[in-house]
Design a protein around this nucleic acid. Structure first.
Lengths: 137, 137
DNA sequence: AAGTTGATGCAACCGGGTTGCAAAGTTATT
DNA sequence: AATAACTTTGCAACCCGGTTGCATCAACTT
């Protein structure tokens, strides 16, 4: 366990501090994308700013990606192994309006948009809202 | 001018107060989607809360639609004439990472996503980021 | 061991969004 | 025309996610 965590960090050139190990641990166990305040709650006593900076460095090193979740806040989730956070790596996200969880639909790529030629493309954020499988039952 | 504004409001069953006329005026002149703080700045002296509630009632009455602009804040733009804010009415939005303006790509509908059958669809938000035509020059 | 660099914790701030409440304005009722 | 009932407005205050400054602490360099 510990080994794998450290491995992942090293692979992305992130110095494996205690804090970072813990955060990555949480992110690994987490099936849905998590927000900063949610992450904060996972710890008894943790500093928001530290977590914030931890997530930021994870993101800069392409260990996680962030999405605007459709309710005005950011959420974070682990990238797929091969992810380079390039446009082709982007997938659709799903926000459940009932339980408020955000799911990575990893196997649904964001459709390509034919922009007017006067616009140039950098990235795209696509969030579908509805009811998730858990809440439908 | 005044006539058209009032007409639009009446059509959507919104009582045409002075404030609402002014806000709709601004929205009509505005080519890009506007945020609440931006709207505030368009007036010498206007109350944020009132503007907020004005936008809210416009939205409830389907005179305008809102989008999460990809930078964490909401923006508002006039609906098309025939718009019912149904999923089929949704279009893609474009955020310029240079000038920070949000454009309605009215003629680019949001592509349909085939959700896993266990998820049900309500709505979708799609924002493309890049450089707009003005900034490319 | 001293010096450099980076990580952490605390506090404070910022800005968008939102609400409560009282005053002003409008509409309806007699 | 006067009153009651409802709506809109303005002000203040608040909430919360995100962010920064700064001092401290840890790790690593020479």
């Amino acid at each position: 366990m510990k080994k794998e965590i450290d491995n992942k960090l090293n692979l992305k050139n992130i110095k494996p501090t205690a804090m970072r190990q813990l955060v990555l641990q949480v992110l690994t166990e987490q099936k849905t994308a998590i927000s900063l305040p949610e992450l904060e709650q996972k710890f008894e006593k943790a500093d928001k700013a530290t977590l914030y900076r931890t997530l930021k460095s994870f993101q800069e090193n392409k260990l996680i990606h962030s999405i605007e979740d459709g309710s005005g806040s950011l959420r974070y989730a682990l990238c797929q192994d091969n992810c380079e956070c390039d446009p082709e790596d982007l997938h659709v996200h799903f926000l459940c309006t009932n339980c408020n969880q955000t799911f990575c639909l990893n196997d649904i790529p964001v459709p390509t948009i034919n922009l007017p030629s006067s616009f140039s493309f950098e990235s795209v954020n696509m969030v579908v809202k509805g009811i998730c499988s858990n809440c439908k039952k």
